Simulated scan of single mutants.
Amino acid sequence: MSFSSDVKEELAKQVSKSRHCQLAELAGIIELSGRINEKTKGLELDTENLLLLNKYATLMKRAFGTDTTKALDEQDTGKILAALKITAQPVNRQTADGLLLMQTCCKRAFIRGAFMAAGSISDPNKAYHFEIVCHTKEQAKQLQELLCGFDTDAKIVERKGHYVVYIKEGAHIVDSLNIMEAYVSLMKLENVRILKEMRNSVNRKVNCETANISKTVNAAVKQIEDIRLIQKMRGLDDLPAQLREMALLRLEYPDAPLKELGGYLDPPMGKSGVNHRLRKLSAIAEELR
């Protein structure tokens, strides 16, 4: 199964004990995936997703004592929609009444229901992307406000006539899983994030070391070219003693870094002093050119 399916499977087992949270989660499901059957006038879900259907059935049983294996009639549907404060049609284009979202736990439940109905998360090994597809801009804005209320960076984009609430930052997707109480999936995502960060850190260090080695090698090649030019056109014996000593050392140790070269001098010299002398040699070479 995909990571998104794993998250939903975990959420399907997460059922709030409080009726007010059950109502909030049902509102999130119905407002994104519910519909009224034209023939029976009964409430049903517009989905074939078994996880969602099972979660919906569990919540309806807990909150209303309703058996969703039987078609709901118009009267029962009216009572349920009234409890959920859904008063207009179509039911899947409504926003949740603020009275359903008064408590933090109810906000979590509503987001969980919305995600179960119309959400997805990409495989974190490939990319970080969390989204919930809404029918209306008002639905998307409400979800965005709820998610941002938990300090996530949720944004909205319009896509093919729908409004998508999405999160791209890995840490904020972890937060969204925490909001929905998908703790097992949260730990899996965190493990992936840690491994990816470790790999990125190693790659950065390797690239940095490679760049430094390349820089050192290129500098040494240039220094040797300058010294060979001086040797050919002027002779090293004509140089001041300190520069002559440095030139001979560089020719003898063409791959040595500056700090190592300084250790061969008598008395030893630091990296900056060695660099200063080599710069003087380069200046002489430039004059000869």
Rank of each mutant, 00 (worst) to 15 (best):
S33D: 10
S33Q: 15
G34N: 03
I36V: 07
I36E: 06
I36W: 04
N37V: 02
E38L: 13
E38W: 11
T40K: 15
K41S: 12
G42T: 04
L43D: 09
E44A: 09
E44P: 04
D46L: 14
D46E: 15
T47P: 05
T47L: 03
E48L: 09
E48A: 06
L50N: 06
L51S: 08
L53Y: 05
L53A: 07
A57W: 04
T58L: 07
T58V: 08
M60S: 11
R62G: 02
A63T: 06
G65N: 05
G65L: 02
D67I: 03
T68V: 14
D76W: 05
T77C: 05
I80W: 08
I80Y: 07
A82K: 00
A83D: 12
K85F: 02
I86A: 00
Q89K: 11
Q89E: 15
P90L: 01
N92T: 02
R93S: 13
T95W: 00
T95P: 00
T95S: 07
A96S: 14
G98R: 08
G98V: 12
L99E: 15
M102R: 11
M102A: 13
Q103Y: 14
Q103S: 12
C105Y: 09
R108V: 01
A109P: 12
A109V: 10
A109L: 09
F110E: 10
I111V: 15
R112W: 00
R112E: 10
R112M: 12
G113L: 01
F115K: 01
A117I: 07
G119C: 10
D123T: 09
P124I: 10
N125W: 12
K126Q: 14
Y128H: 12
Y128W: 11
F130L: 04
V133N: 11
V133I: 15
V133M: 14
C134Y: 00
K137Y: 03
A140R: 05
K141H: 11
Q144H: 06
E145R: 14
L146C: 08
L147M: 15
C148H: 03
F150H: 04
F150D: 04
D151G: 06
D153L: 07
D153I: 03
A154K: 02
V157C: 13
E158S: 14
E158I: 00
E158N: 12
K160D: 15
K160W: 05
